[in-house]
Computed example of a mutant assay.
Amino acid sequence: MTDTQERILTAFKQLLIENGYTKTTTRKIANLAEVNELTIFNNFKDKEGLLNAAVNDYLNDVNELTNNIQLSGNVETDLTMLSQQCQSFFNDHKAIILAGFRDAFDIPSLNAAIQKIPLYFKQFLMDYFKKMQTNGVIDHNLNVEAQSMNFIWLNFGYFLTGQRFNTPGLSFDLTYFLQNNIKSFINGLFE
Rank of each mutant, 00 (worst) to 15 (best):
I97G: 07
V75K: 06
D78R: 02
I107K: 05
Q14A: 03
N91Q: 07
R7T: 14
N60S: 04
I96T: 08
T22Y: 07
A54V: 06
R102T: 05
E64N: 15
I17W: 00
K45W: 14
Q84L: 12
A53Q: 11
I17L: 04
I40E: 06
R7L: 10
L59W: 07
N19Q: 12
K47F: 00
T80M: 07
L16G: 00
N68V: 02
K47G: 12
A33V: 11
S88R: 03
K28L: 11
T24Y: 11
N42T: 12
Q85E: 06
L50G: 13
Q70Y: 12
L9G: 04
Q87Y: 11
D57L: 13
D106F: 03
I69N: 00
E64A: 14
E48N: 01
T22V: 14
E37R: 15
E64Q: 15
N42P: 12
A112D: 05
L65H: 11
V75D: 10
A112P: 02
A113M: 02
L50Y: 02
K116M: 06
I97F: 01
P118W: 13
N36M: 04
L16H: 03
L50I: 08
N42S: 05
T80S: 01
F44L: 02
N43I: 02
F90Q: 00
A30V: 15
R102I: 06
Y21Q: 06
A33H: 01
N91H: 02
R7W: 12
K28S: 01
V62R: 12
K47Q: 09
L98I: 01
L71P: 03
D92Q: 06
D46Q: 02
Q84V: 01
A30D: 05
S83M: 01
N19A: 11
N42L: 00
L59F: 08
I97T: 00
Y58H: 09
K45E: 09
A11S: 15
E64W: 13
K94H: 12
A54S: 00
A95P: 05
N111F: 15
A95N: 09
D78T: 08
N52W: 15
N56V: 12
E37C: 08
T80N: 07
D61W: 05
E18S: 04
I107R: 08
P108L: 04
F89R: 01
